[in-house]
Simulated assay, not measured.
Amino acid sequence: MNILQLKESITAIAESNQSVSEKRQEICDYLKQEIDYYHWVGFYFKNGNAAELKLAEFAGEPTEHTVIPFGKGICGQVAISNENFVVPDVTAQDNYISCGFKVKSEIVIPIFVNGENVGQIDIDSHITNPFSEADELFLEFVCKKVAQLK
Rank of each mutant, 00 (worst) to 15 (best):
M1I: 05
L6W: 03
E8G: 12
I10R: 02
T11R: 13
I13A: 01
I13E: 04
E15N: 15
S16Q: 14
Q18W: 10
Q18S: 11
S19M: 07
V20M: 13
E26Y: 10
I27K: 05
L31H: 03
K32R: 15
E34M: 13
I35G: 00
D36C: 01
Y38V: 14
H39C: 10
W40Y: 09
V41D: 00
Y44W: 10
F45A: 06
K46A: 14
N47Q: 15
A51M: 15
E52H: 05
K54Q: 06
L55S: 11
G60E: 12
P62N: 14
G71F: 02
I74V: 15
C75K: 03
C75Q: 09
C75V: 00
Q77S: 15
A79L: 08
I80W: 02
N82P: 08
N82H: 15
E83N: 10
E83S: 11
N84E: 04
V87H: 14
V87Y: 07
V87R: 04
P88S: 11
P88L: 04
D89E: 12
D89V: 08
D89L: 12
V90A: 08
V90G: 02
Q93A: 04
D94K: 07
D94P: 09
N95V: 06
Y96D: 03
I97Y: 10
G100F: 06
V103Y: 04
K104S: 01
S105L: 01
I107P: 00
V108R: 02
F112S: 07
V113P: 07
V113C: 13
N114M: 09
G115Y: 09
E116L: 11
N117M: 08
G119W: 00
Q120C: 10
I121V: 15
D122N: 10
D122H: 12
D124S: 01
I127W: 00
I127C: 04
T128K: 06
N129L: 04
P130F: 10
P130S: 10
S132N: 06
E133H: 11
A134K: 09
A134P: 01
A134T: 14
A134F: 05
E136R: 04
L139K: 00
L139R: 03
E140D: 09
L149W: 10
K150N: 13
